[in-house]
């Protein structure tokens, strides 16, 4: 009887899991499907599931805009922002995890609370700051803003991973004559590497998909892929085929990247739970 319940529960959970996964994946699936349709097929009712695929939308997208220019900007901005954010977050998380003071908790919560503010609330000041420092429409400017918006989450994640590393191991390093810097680089970082990798991955994905600041702080020179998608949405009305092709091109790299590194991501996110 118990076994029977177990089996039925397992089947139920499996169906539920697949259902949620498919539900989440459906928009992406539909987007990719639409990108291979002609503009007429794309807006036909009822929507067509079976059709003669065409690459015409892709051709037009490549003709109209320089995909590689946008893609390169996205890579520069997300990799740059992630690298700087991790470099700043490691010492911050180290001090909070291993040298906590009575204000550490408050600081952490305050950092997280900055993520709760709608970005549009600080749009004007940030825009003016960027303008006055001549960082408008530059990869540096966008990278700095992306880095700052993600920093709280990165510090939080690293803090959690560092807390999993037993303090005596670091103390042993100190007894062995390691300086704080050596203790961090030679003992802590190798131990927390899975956590750092998954944090960096998450940051990369967040930066890659970040649209609000890209659209507001860049126009042509530093515009990333999110601006590339947006450029297909307005002037002449919506062309779903081209829009889908542009979106597919924009998300494909990070999707593939995420797929390849999913093991690392999951391992990082459950680090400690299964140590």
């Amino acid at each position: 009887m118990a076994l029977k319940t177990k089996t039925s529960t397992r089947i139920g959970v499996t169906i539920l899991g697949w259902g949620i996964a498919l539900w989440l994946f459906f928009p992406i699936f539909w987007m990719i499907l639409t990108s291979f349709k002609s503009e007429v097929q794309a807006i036909s009712t009822p929507p067509k599931l079976f059709f003669m695929p065409t690459l015409s939308s892709y051709g037009e997208v490549f003709e109209r805009a320089s995909y590689w220019h946008f893609a390169l900007n996205t890579v520069i901005v997300s990799v740059g922002a992630t690298a700087i954010a991790v470099a700043l977050a490691v010492p911050a998380a180290y001090s909070m995890a291993f040298l906590p003071s009575k204000r550490t908790r408050g600081t952490l919560l305050w950092m997280l609370s900055t993520r709760m503010l709608p970005p549009v609330g600080v749009l004007v000041p940030i825009y003016l700051l960027a303008r006055n420092t001549h960082l408008l429409d530059t990869c540096t400017g966008l990278a700095v803003v992306d880095m700052l918006t993600n920093l709280p989450i990165i510090v939080w994640m690293l803090y959690t991973f560092f807390r999993e590393v037993p303090a005596p191991i670091l103390e042993a390093g100190r007894m062995d004559g390691a300086t704080r810097w050596q203790e961090m680089t030679m003992v802590l970082l190798p131990l927390a590497l899975p956590g750092i990798a998954s944090t960096a991955l998450l940051s990369l994905i967040l930066c890659w998909n970040e649209a609000f600041w890209s659209l507001n702080l860049t126009s042509s020179h530093a515009a990333p892929l999110t601006a590339f998608i947006a450029s297909f949405s307005s002037p002449e009305g919506l062309f779903f085929g081209k829009l889908s092709a542009a979106s597919t091109l924009a998300v494909a790299p990070i999707l593939v990247f995420g797929w390849i590194s999913q093991k690392q991501l999951v391992r990082g996110l459950t680090f400690g739970a299964v140590k």
Binding site: I169, E171, M175, G177, P190
Partner: peptide
């Protein structure tokens, strides 16, 4: 004086070996 420069060595309860 820094711990590493006191000329001491310590054995911890949890061994505290470097796992990597």
């Amino acid at each position: 004086v820094e711990p590493g420069k006191r000329g001491l060595a310590m054995v911890f309860q949890s061994y505290a070996l470097y796992p990597h």
